[in-house]
């Protein structure tokens, strides 16, 4: 596994196997990373809508949709459109999901790592926890913005908040993954809540489902 230099990712962009679109300025291309801009939607946790995050609530059950589950899912976040010129105030300690302006497509042999740009990190902005973008991913990248500082941060769509560094993957012998395999968030157009129970249901079903 090795990091791609500017000339290496430019070559990939030219060939079309790597997509970061649109890149509004050549200044977005760094020596080993590409800057990403904030998009125009914000998803915030809705205070008071639930007492805690419960992975059991995510377990799919057969039959028609259940009112309570759907309601919890629908009311989990407040969704705000933030057109250009409008702003979003990120308060200390709060978490907000925003998309990148750029549409990204990674080939099967590249992985992306997303972090905050250092100038924003110094203001207390953290681009949280899930920084790895899997190979073959297609869509916007969700930035999990958190304010670690002590004063609110005013954010505008179009600002370069994040950067993505790209790494090539090593494969053993001729074994290569199926390029057509895409994950849970494939073709995302905006941030959405994930399914935290997916694949781990066996552990969650050990206790009584009646007592969440």
């Amino acid at each position: 596994m090795g990091a791609l230099s500017k000339s290496a990712f430019q070559e990939r962009l030219k060939g079309g196997s790597l997509v970061v679109s649109p890149i509004l300025s050549g200044k977005q291309l760094g020596r080993s990373s590409i800057d990403l801009r904030m998009g125009t939607v914000a998803l915030m946790s809705r205070a008071g809508s639930q007492s805690h995050v419960d992975p059991r609530a995510y377990i799919a059950t057969p039959g028609p949709p259940q009112h309570a589950k759907v309601q919890v899912k629908q009311q989990k976040h407040e969704r705000h459109e933030v057109p250009y010129g409008r702003d979003l105030l990120l308060h200390p300690g709060s978490l907000v999901l925003v998309p990148t302006l750029e549409w990204v497509q990674l080939p099967y042999d590249l992985q992306g790592i997303v972090t905050a740009r250092s100038c924003w990190a110094r203001e207390g902005l953290n681009i949280a926890t899930a920084t790895i973008i899997n190979p073959s991913y297609r869509g916007i990248i969700t930035l999990e913005l958190a304010n670690f500082g002590e004063i609110p941060i005013r954010l505008f769509p179009g600002l370069r908040l994040a950067q993505i560094a790209l790494y090539s993957l090593d494969f053993v012998g001729d074994v290569q993954p199926d390029a057509a395999t895409h994950g849970q968030f494939d073709l995302s157009f905006e941030p959405a809540a994930g399914n935290v129970s997916l694949g781990d249901e066996v552990f969650l079903k050990l206790g009584s489902l009646d007592k969440p």
């Binding site: 000339s7 430019q10 070559e11 679109s21 649109p22 890149i23 300025s25 050549g26």
Partner: peptide, 10 residues
């Protein structure tokens, strides 16, 4: 309206 040219520039 976006493309990467032959020099790799956006």
């Amino acid at each position: 309206g976006f493309a990467v040219d032959s020099q790799g520039e956006p």
